[in-house]
């Protein structure tokens, strides 16, 4: 048998609730996350109105004029956990520009999410929204986690990504800057 990386260990550590310490100790052995975005014909984004961890409502329609990265995720999903810090770095890279990140958690409560985010080196400063009954995921036709959409200033889906990504990769930053200029 040929030895490979410890991806399986990471998955199973998360699966069994061993938590972030076990996961992070193995993260260095994992292959790089990819950074591809799939461009698509611009189509109006479905509605997205959800409350965040503090109970504050967020409505995507209110963000017209901004470029928005919308990430569907859950704490038990290993690639979701891996890519989340890169979304915060992306947000900081584009700080001061008309760019927002919304992370939509499926089916979990605020306490569960807080346990996860408290283990990150940097807590996310973007809103984490609660799609408790997964109705929003279904409206967005999400088939698996993580799935991410890029919304242009006109409120249209212009790109997507299925599976974990390194969102602060220069190519993704460049793609968002292009959208910000349009």
């Amino acid at each position: 048998m040929k030895m490979r990386n410890s991806l399986a260990g990471l998955m199973l550590g998360v699966l069994t609730g061993l938590g972030a310490p076990a996961a992070s100790s193995l993260a260095a052995d994992l292959p790089d996350l990819s950074h591809s975005l799939t461009r698509q014909t611009p189509t109006p984004a479905p509605a997205l109105r959800l409350k965040d961890l503090d109970g504050t409502s967020h409505d995507l329609a209110q963000l017209k004029g901004h470029v928005v990265l919308i990430n569907f995720w859950a704490t038990w999903c290993p690639p979701c956990r891996r890519e989340m810090p890169s979304m915060e770095r992306l947000l900081q890279t584009l700080k001061g520009e008309a760019f927002d990140v919304l992370a939509v958690d499926v089916g979990e409560d605020a306490d569960t999410i807080d346990v996860f985010t408290s283990q990150l080196d940097t807590r996310p400063t973007f809103p984490i929204l609660l799609d408790t009954r997964s109705h929003t995921l279904q409206a967005w036709k999400v088939a698996g986690l993580p799935t991410t959409f890029l919304i242009d200033r006109q409120g249209r889906i212009v790109a997507s990504a299925i599976g974990g990504r390194e969102f602060d990769h220069p190519e993704i930053v460049q793609a968002i800057r292009e959208l910000l200029r349009n």
């Binding site: 990504a161 299925i162 599976g163």
Partner: peptide, 19 residues
């Protein structure tokens, strides 16, 4: 439901999923 591998899905180049 979300922890299972999706029944059907389209993957663009670079896309991947697990379940």
């Amino acid at each position: 439901t979300w922890a299972q591998f999706p029944d059907t899905q389209t993957f663009a180049p670079g896309d991947w999923n697990q379940g």
